[in-house]
Measured scan of single mutants.
Amino acid sequence: EVYKVKIKIERVLPNGEKVEEEITIEVEGMSEEELLALARELAAEPGVRIKEIEIEKLPP
């Protein structure tokens, strides 16, 4: 199964400015739980906050 994972994050820059970013990846052969863990890892940097995680199962 192939999933499209869209992660919206908010990053706080050293000057205090907040910037929103969106990361989209396609992943194959992982469960939804593994995808959530991967998304959290991607956003685990200091000053980064996850705003939204969207997981979509793509048709075969």
Rank of each mutant, 00 (worst) to 15 (best):
V19Y: 07
L13R: 10
A39G: 04
V19T: 08
P60Q: 12
I55Y: 06
A44S: 12
K57Q: 09
E33H: 15
E54P: 00
G16A: 02
E1M: 14
P46L: 13
A44Y: 09
K18S: 11
L42Q: 04
L42V: 05
E52T: 14
P46E: 05
V2L: 12
E10D: 05
G47K: 02
P46C: 08
A39W: 13
K18Q: 05
V27N: 03
E32G: 06
E20C: 06
I53H: 00
L36Y: 15
T24M: 10
V12L: 10
V5M: 15
K18Y: 13
L42T: 07
P60T: 10
E54C: 08
I9M: 08
K6H: 05
I53M: 06
L58S: 09
E22Y: 10
P46N: 11
E45G: 12
I50M: 02
L38Y: 15
A43D: 06
I55D: 00
E28G: 11
K57L: 10
I7L: 10
V19K: 09
K18H: 13
E34N: 12
V2E: 03
I50W: 02
R11V: 02
R49S: 04
E54V: 15
E33M: 14
V12K: 10
E28R: 02
R11T: 02
G16N: 04
L42S: 03
I23F: 09
G47E: 06
E26V: 10
V2F: 13
L13P: 01
P59A: 12
E54D: 07
E56L: 14
E21L: 11
A39E: 02
E32K: 09
E34P: 03
T24L: 12
R40Q: 05
E22C: 10
L38R: 12
K51A: 05
I23C: 06
K6W: 14
E34Q: 15
V2H: 12
G29Q: 03
E33T: 14
K4C: 03
K4I: 06
E52V: 11
L36Q: 06
E26W: 12
L58F: 08
P14F: 10
I7F: 15
I9Y: 12
E33L: 15
L13C: 05
E1S: 14
K6Y: 11
E54I: 15
I25K: 04
M30G: 11
I53Q: 01
R11I: 03
I50L: 08
I9N: 00
E41H: 13
V12S: 15
L58E: 05
Y3K: 01
I25D: 01
I53Y: 03
P59M: 13
S31Y: 11
E34R: 14
L35K: 01
V48G: 03
P14E: 11
N15G: 09
P46M: 08
T24A: 10
E1H: 12
R49L: 11
E34A: 15
L58H: 10
S31T: 06
G47L: 03
G16T: 01
Y3C: 01
N15R: 02
P59H: 12
E22G: 02
L35A: 10
P59K: 13
S31F: 06
A43V: 15
K4E: 02
Y3H: 02
L58V: 07
P59G: 13
P14R: 05
P46V: 11
A44H: 08
I55S: 02
E10V: 09
E22S: 08
E52W: 15
L58Y: 13
I7Q: 00
I9G: 00
I23D: 00
V19M: 08
R49W: 12
I55H: 02
A37Q: 10
E56P: 02
K8R: 10
E45Q: 12
V27Q: 05
K57R: 06
V12F: 09
R40D: 02
E32L: 10
A39M: 14
E1C: 11
K4Q: 05
L58G: 09
I55L: 09
A39R: 05
L36W: 15
E28D: 08
P14Y: 09
S31V: 09
G29E: 06
I50A: 01
E34V: 15
L38E: 01
E34W: 15
E32P: 14
V27L: 10
E41V: 15
V12M: 05
E26C: 05
I9C: 02
T24S: 06
I50D: 00
R40E: 03
K8E: 01
E28L: 14
E20P: 04
V2D: 01
N15D: 09
E56R: 11
E34K: 14
E21F: 08
V48W: 06
E10T: 04
E32V: 14
I9A: 01
A37P: 02
E54L: 15
G29P: 07
K4D: 00
V48Y: 06
R11F: 05
K57I: 09
V12W: 09
L42H: 10
E54G: 08
G29F: 06
K18I: 15
V5E: 00
I7Y: 05
E10A: 03
K57N: 05
V19F: 05
I53V: 07
L35R: 02
V27E: 03
P59I: 15
E41A: 15
E26A: 07
R40K: 04
K6V: 04
P14W: 15
